[in-house]
Amino acid sequence: MLTIGSVAPDFELYAKPDQKVRLSGLRGKNVILAFYPADWSPVCGNQMSLYNEMESFFIRQNAQLVGISVDSRWCHTAFAEQNKFGFPLLADFEPKGAVSKVYEAYDEGTGECRRALYVIDQNGVIRWNYLSPIDVNPGADGILNALEQINKSTTNDNTINTAGK
């Protein structure tokens, strides 16, 4: 896993057949990167469905969730429609797993992503990471705690800045 405090490497991947998402385009928001092994496999469905229910929590924390796997944009589209996902699934498809490898979230044995989570702050700095066993849905408490930590420190910084002026 990339270390906490380092700058999250930028990337651009397809989110829909005709639309790409660039990480640096999300600056100003906290970003949750959720790498997961594959569309359609049951545990992943659960993990992504759980995160899908948390839209209001993430909005409150000024956060954007993106899921990433090596499935194609067409596969992602069908998977997202079936489960009514309200967040983008990015296709790390060509060259296969390139972004996942950079984020040390790629399993060479299976050719799929590992179940890795990153929380990146508004300035693009990695603030939290977690690697879950492949068959365990890690839930969302870690993500939520990390986001609250970030927002607490941001508020404090703002207070200090204002006070200094």
Partner: peptide, 12 residues
């Protein structure tokens, strides 16, 4: 209730 579940690590 839902939020307490999230905090408690409920994952399904």
């Amino acid at each position: 209730d839902f939020e307490s579940g999230i905090r408690s690590g409920v994952n399904g």
